[in-house]
Simulated assay, not measured.
Amino acid sequence: MAHRIVILGGGYAGVTAANRIARRLDGAEVTLVNERATFVERVRLHQVAVGESIVLRPLRERVRPGVTVVVARAGGIDLDRREVVLERGASSGAQRLPYDTLVYALGSQAAPAPDDAVALATVDDAWRARDRVGALAAEPGPVAVVGGGLTGIEAATELAERHPAVRVRVVSDVDPGSWLSHRAQRHLRRVFGRLGIEVVSGSVADVRDGAVQLTDGRVVGAGLTLACTGFAVPSLAAGSGLAVDGTGRIRVDGTMRSVSHPDVYAVGDAAVPELPNGRDFRMACATALPMSAAAGTAIADRLAGRKPAGLRFRYVNQCISLGRRDGVIQAVDGDDSPLRMILGGRVAASYKEAVVRGASWFAAHPGPYRPARAVPA
């Protein structure tokens, strides 16, 4: 009987893992489970939110021949029976999909946000925001972007550039881009000034009735509030009994294998590798792609009787788009600490676009990943 490998999640991490496994293993049954039939470039959702178009490619076109795509939601994992509970809709009921090896690549979702705010974590979120932005652009009103992190910065600059009549305010309890070098922060402030983006410092207490209410009593008017306050992982892993950290991410070793269940691997935003230097990976394509490639290689090596070498990874840079015509590329050391060197302007925008396109291409065409030489077990 063929070895049954099930991958949960059809984002960058899941597609990379499925293609890597299918490329290296002959005769295995590889099944990719995803809620949508399309592959979504999540790093472009801020573009969708302001009215730009992106191509949603059928998931079956992004995976290698031999990978079976199942459109369903993973509602549970029975670790003892090695089965995934699939939910296809009320009419179909729950179904069980058996596995010999499971790859958990369900990624992350928006952190909890007030009901009156719109998040930017899924393509449905982005479409919802796009409709609201379109109405505001026709009859200009203010937009509040809550959060000074990467998503908030990219959403605010994209919006201000495409809809200059819309007043954009970034509401954050920390300076936007505070983790960047001083040179990168100066460039960011110049772009905010050029685009007319206002920064409001403060902590958000609530969002309702067309306004953002701060903890100090101030009120920031907003016809639309975009919640860009970070990401959280689904509760499925913890609820199923897998060993997780304090945020719910699956604890894995250097080969992306669960420390509690050896027939389960986890990659991408929902996994936290236990690496010798104690580093904590940030949620990003930059980490999801090599993690997934390493997991696929490890699974193939173990099934072939070889000892997998595990993940070897270092950071190189952080790429931030500031609209379609500007950006900032922050050089970092191997541990992700900012260095002095940056790129800005159109060169940085082109660089970021190339990185985004490259991530999508790599997921569909993962080449040979050799973290180290695999040796017989």
Rank of each mutant, 00 (worst) to 15 (best):
V259L: 15
R4T: 12
F231G: 04
Y99K: 08
S240L: 06
P140W: 13
A364F: 03
W361N: 08
P371H: 08
R357H: 09
G196Y: 13
E52W: 03
A288C: 06
P262T: 09
T215N: 09
L106C: 13
R20D: 10
C228E: 01
G334R: 14
G196F: 13
R57A: 10
L180Q: 05
Q185I: 06
R189V: 04
E161Q: 14
L180G: 02
D301Q: 15
L25P: 03
R44E: 08
A364Y: 03
V50L: 05
I77C: 01
P114R: 08
P112N: 01
L25G: 05
V252Q: 01
Q330A: 00
P58Y: 14
L159P: 01
A294L: 08
T297V: 09
A227E: 04
N34C: 06
G254P: 07
L45I: 10
T122N: 14
D336M: 04
A138N: 12
F192S: 06
G66W: 03
S235V: 13
R314I: 15
F281C: 06
W179V: 02
G254E: 11
Q185T: 10
V170M: 01
C228K: 00
E35G: 12
A359F: 15
T297S: 02
P142V: 11
V332K: 13
A119Q: 14
S201D: 06
A119I: 10
V191T: 14
F231T: 11
L224Y: 00
V146E: 01
Y12Q: 06
E83I: 07
R167T: 13
F231E: 05
R194A: 08
A22E: 00
A364W: 03
I197H: 00
Y12N: 10
A349N: 02
P273W: 03
G210F: 05
A293V: 05
